[in-house]
């Protein structure tokens, strides 16, 4: 019965999120699609940062690897789309694995520095890649090719993004509730005790980093066909910090928190910008500090308290 109920909830949520795509206008569709990419990235980054406890700043770099790889493989090099897709995903995964091997030996501050350096490296490579990456101007004027003679465009591409978010959430939730998820949380809380319980700490860390970074690569691939433009600044540092803010404000370690945080902080500037201009980043900064001080479980923690309050 629970299985049936869960399936119905998933189906209803996906259907509602997809239906929205057909109802929204041009500008709102663009906002909605980018919000879905943020949610997908926030979900995987939450697993890495909030659940596995790895303070890594390479998430957008891997999204960049995915986005540039698909465009270069499919359009600059003209490979068949299916092959280009698999190669782009494989490249994200392989690169994530290579970065994870030395990085996961590091902890806290040092992991942050190493992954920050990697992010800068990716940024330099895509900015200085000449004709292959389009330099600082990036690449434009390509479109999603037909896959099996089907053209996915308009609201249907938004549905693809909804499915991306849904499958990311489904995967990460399933892993979180398994021995793997418990091992990740145990390492985050106390790596020494985790090892004494038979957990191969390095292996789990490398797996968590590689898996979540590959999911970032997948979100990057999907991002590449929203505007049919990619350029370096999107994958720079400003966005990785915004992603971190989303997780903290939403509630680190909670999937629903990642979704709430991403939607909230992505949409907030649309409300704030007319009032405070570019000052909204200051508002975000204050929000993050307040969250850390007074509501460490984030917005998700507030949501979880509601039923308890009603009961009393």
């Amino acid at each position: 019965m629970r299985l049936l109920r869960d399936a119905l909830i998933w189906f209803a949520a996906i259907a509602a999120a997809s239906a929205l795509a057909f109802w929204l206008g041009g500008y709102a569709t663009d906002v909605y699609r980018k919000m879905l990419i943020w949610v997908a990235l926030a979900l995987s980054y939450n697993f890495l940062f909030g659940i596995a406890g790895q303070v890594a700043f390479s998430h957008f770099a891997f999204a960049g690897v995915g986005a540039y790889a698909i465009v270069i493989f499919a359009h600059q090099l003209g490979l068949p789309f299916g092959l280009a897709f698999i190669l782009a995903l494989a490249l994200s995964a392989a690169l994530a694995f290579v970065v994870a091997l030395p990085s996961t030996r590091l902890e806290g501050f040092y992991l942050a520095l190493a992954t920050l350096a990697f992010s800068q490296l990716v940024l330099v490579v895509i900015s200085e890649g000449g004709d292959l990456t389009g330099g600082t101007g990036g690449i434009a004027n390509y479109r999603l090719p037909h896959v099996f003679d089907v053209t996915i465009s308009g609201p249907w591409y938004t549905v693809v993004l909804v499915l991306l978010v849904a499958s990311t959430l489904w995967m990460l939730r399933r892993l979180d509730r398994s021995a793997f998820g418990r091992a990740c949380r145990a390492i985050r809380d106390n790596a020494v005790a985790a090892a004494a319980m038979g957990i191969d700490v390095r292996r789990i860390k490398v797996l968590a980093f590689t898996l979540t970074s590959t999911l970032a690569g997948l979100a990057g691939i999907a991002y590449a066909y929203i505007d049919n433009v990619i350029n370096p600044p999107v994958f720079g540092l400003e966005n990785i910090f915004l992603l971190l803010f989303m997780i903290i404000v939403g509630g680190a370690g909670s999937h629903i928190g990642a979704i709430i945080g991403a939607v909230f902080l992505y949409l907030a500037p649309f409300v704030l910008e007319p009032i405070v201009g570019h000052g909204f980043m200051v508002v975000f900064g204050v929000l993050v500090v307040l969250t850390i001080l007074f509501q460490p479980s984030g917005l998700a923690g507030l949501v979880n308290r509601w039923p308890a309050r009603r009961a009393t």
């Binding site: 021995a179 793997f180 418990r182 091992a183 809380d189 106390n190 957990i199 898996l211």
Partner: peptide, 23 residues
């Protein structure tokens, strides 16, 4: 203890070697 986890999950971590399956 694993301070961020429930009591049951703390103990389930101890079962890790008995249920470590591939992803």
């Amino acid at each position: 203890p694993f301070a961020g986890m429930s009591l049951t999950d703390n103990i389930l971590v101890g079962c890790h070697t008995r249920c470590s399956d591939s992803l």
